[in-house]
Design a protein around this nucleic acid. Structure first.
Lengths: 210, 210, 210, 210
DNA sequence: AATGAATGAGAGTTCATTCAT
DNA sequence: GATGAATGAACTCTCATTCAT
C-alpha cells in the first residue's frame, strides 16, 4: 500500500513509481538512506531522470518509502487485531512480525537526517498515529485480559518494537533470525503480567515517544 | 582507555589525539560515521591537517574510536564483575550502564561501512572477545545462582545489549532516558529465571554472534 | 584518431570527449601531467564533473591522451613509409615530423608516474609495438639501400626520436624550432652510412628499449 | 662544489646543508621537483624544520641544487678543456660525461615551474654564461682544428647536450646507459667536419638559447 | 639549533540535481 | 515521458610552511 496519488498515473508511470519505491526500500535498508540516487535508479531499472520526475528530491523518495512502510505495518497491526483471539496474541504476533518488517522500517530511524525528514511529514504523522492507536488498543486489551503487565503503555511497546527494527548487521541469516526471535521472546516474557521488578518511571504513552 | 601508542607521543600531540577521539565519539554518535572530517576537527579544536596527521583516513579514526569504546565497556564489565556481590547483579548493572555507553558504542554498528571496517580489525576483535569472555562468566555465574534463566547464553545477552546501544533518535532526553531504562527493566524481567515461554532455538554463545 | 568507443557515445558526449582529449594534450604538454584537472576541464570548456564522467581519474585521461598521441605517430609513420620513395627518406621525414609531434608525445615520458601508468596499458603497448615494427622496416630498408649506417637498429632510432620529443622549455618559438631542426639534421648526418666512429655496444632492437 | 656561503656555517650546519642538497639532487632526479619536502628531509636524515631553516622554501632548494649542478658541469668542462689535447676531444669528453651528469642536471628543465625559477636566478645565469663561454671556446677551437663542422655554434652543442640530459625512464640501467652512449656517438658523428647535409638556419650562439 | 606537530589552502573526486536529446 | 550527460558544490585528503617544544 502506497501513498495518495492525486491524479491516477498512467499505467507505465505507475509501474515505474512502484519499482522505484521497491528498489529504494531494499537499497535504503541495505546501504542506508545516503546511497547515490543513481544506484536506486539502476536497481529500479530506470534512468535518474525518471526517478527525479517521480520524486523531486531525495527527501521525497525517503518520505514515499516511509509511507509505504508504515502503511504495511499498520495493515499488519489491523489484521492481527482482527484475526487473533486475544489482544495479547495480537501483540505477540505483531512483535514477531516485526522481524519481517525490520528491513522496511528501519529506515525510519536509520539516520538523523532521515529522522528529521520524517518527523515533519504529516502523512507519516497520521500513519504513525493510527498505528499507535492500534497499539494502544492492544495494550489496553491485553492488560484488561490480565496477560500484559499493567505498568506499561503503548509507548513502551513501541519502543521495544523499534529496538528490534534496528537489525544488527552481518552474521549468518539463520543466527540473525534466531537471535532476533529469542530477543523477542525474552522481551515478551518480560512483558508478561507477573510479579517482577517494578518498572522505573511511568508508563510511556504515544505522546511520550516523540 | 585508548589504544597502544608505539612511540609515546609528545605531550601536545597526545592531548590532541585524545581530544580528537573524544570529539569523534560524540559527533559520530550524533550524526553517524559519515560526518565531514572537518566537523570533527572543529569539535576537537584542531585543524583538519592535525586530524589527518593522527589518523591517516576516516577508517583509522573510526577504528580508534571503536577501540576506545570497547575498552571502556570492557573495563566497566570487569569492574561490575569484581564489585557486585552476584553475577546477576553484575549483569543488571552492565545492562543499565549500557545507557551511559550507548553514545560511545553505537558507532560499532551504525552503518554497513563502519561495520565492514571494524569487522576486519584484529585489535577490535580481541577486545570484543575479551568482553564476551566476561559476559560468559557472568551468564554462567548467574545461571549457577539460579537467577538467570538457564536457556540463554552470552550471545543472547550481547544481542539484547547491542539492541540497546542502537539508541533511537530525537525525543526529549528525559523520555529517551526513561524509555531506555524501562526497556532494560522489561528485558531483565524477561531474563529472570522463572517459568515463562521457552525460548525458540538454542542458547546463543559468543561464537554464534558473528 | 582516438580510442575505441565500446558503445557509440551520444553526439554531444562524443564532442565533449574529443575536446577534453585535445585540451589535455595541449595542457599536459605545456604544464606536465600534474596540472589541476580543473585546468583541463576549463580549457576543454566543460565542468570537472564532465571530465570525470568521461575519465574516471587522471590516469584514465593520461592513458587516453597517450593512445591518441601514439595513434597519430603511427599513422604518420605509415604514411611516410608509403609515400616516400626510399626508406631513408621516410626515416628522415619521420624525424622531422617529430617536431610537430613533440607536443603531443612528450607526455609519454614526462614524469615517472606517467611512465608507470602507460607502461601497464595493453592498448598503448600494442600501438608502441606497431610503431616499432614500422620503424624496424624503415631501418632495415634504409640499411639495405646503403643509406643508413649498418650498426644501428630501430631501438637506436627510437631513442633519438624520443630525445627530441623532450622539448626544452622556454626561449622564442622560432629559435626553439630552428634549434630542433638543426639537432635533427646533425643526428641524421650522424646516422648516414659513412665511415665514422663505430658505435659502442650493439644495435638496439625494439626488445631492448623496454 | 656548492654555493657561496655568506657567513661560513658551523661545521654541523654545513654538513646538514650538504646532506640536504645531496639528497635533494637524487630525489629531484628520480621523482621530479614536486616531491614532498618531507621526503627530501627524510632522505637527508633531518627534520623538515631543519630543511626550512636552511632553505626558506622549495624554490630556494631548487636553486641551490641547480647551482650545485651547474658548478659541477662547469668544473668538468674546464677540466676537459685543460686536460684534453684537442678542443674536439674536450668536446667529445664533455658530451660523454653528460651521462654522468644527466641525473643531476635534468632538474634544470624538468618542469615548467622549475624552469621559471631558474631563469630568474642571477647566480645560475652567471654559471650558465661561464659554461657557455667554455663551450664557445671548445667549438671555436675544434672548428679551427677542422674537426668540427663549421656550421654549428655553441648553442647547437648546448642543445644536443641538453637533449641528452633528459634521460628516458625505465628499462634496464645497462641498456639505458648503452643507448645513451650510442646516441651520443651518433650525434658526435653528425657533428664531425665532413661533407654532409648543410644544416638549416644559422649557427646558434649562446645568446640564442634563452 | 633541531625537531616534528599544527595549520589551512588547494587538489582530486563524488554525486545531487538540472537539462538537452 | 524517458534518458543519461553536464554541472558544480561539497567533501576527502595532501603538503608547504610555520611554530611550539
Amino acid at each position: 500500500m502506497s501513498a495518495d496519488p492525486q491524479v491516477p498515473l498512467r499505467a507505465d508511470a505507475r509501474r515505474n513509481r512502484d519499482q522505484i519505491i521497491a528498489a529504494a526500500r531494499t537499497i535504503f535498508a541495505e546501504f542506508g538512506p545516503e546511497v547515490p540516487m543513481e544506484e536506486i535508479a539502476r536497481a529500479a531499472g530506470v534512468g535518474v531522470g525518471t526517478l527525479y520526475r517521480r520524486f523531486p528530491d531525495r527527501e521525497a523518495l525517503i518520505r514515499a518509502v516511509a509511507v509505504d512502510n508504515f502503511s504495511r505495518v499498520l495493515e499488519d497491526a489491523r489484521e492481527a487485531a482482527e484475526q487473533e483471539p486475544t489482544a495479547w496474541c495480537a501483540l505477540v504476533r505483531l512483535l514477531h512480525q516485526s522481524v519481517e518488517l525490520h528491513l522496511s522500517v528501519q529506515l525510519a530511524m536509520l539516520s538523523k537526517k532521515a529522522h528529521e525528514i520524517l518527523k515533519e511529514d504529516p502523512v507519516i504523522a497520521r500513519l504513525r498515529e493510527e498505528l499507535l492507536v492500534e497499539l494502544e488498543a492492544m495494550v489496553q486489551g491485553a492488560q484488561d485480559e490480565g496477560t500484559l503487565r499493567p505498568d506499561v503503555a503503548e509507548g513502551d511497546v513501541a519502543m521495544l518494537f523499534a529496538l528490534l527494527l534496528r537489525q544488527l548487521e552481518s552474521r549468518s541469516p539463520e543466527i540473525a533470525r534466531m537471535s532476533t526471535e529469542r530477543s523477542i521472546a525474552i522481551m515478551i516474557d518480560g512483558l508478561q503480567a507477573r510479579p517482577g521488578t517494578p518498572l522505573p518511571g511511568r508508563p510511556l504513552g504515544r505522546r511520550d515517544i516523540n
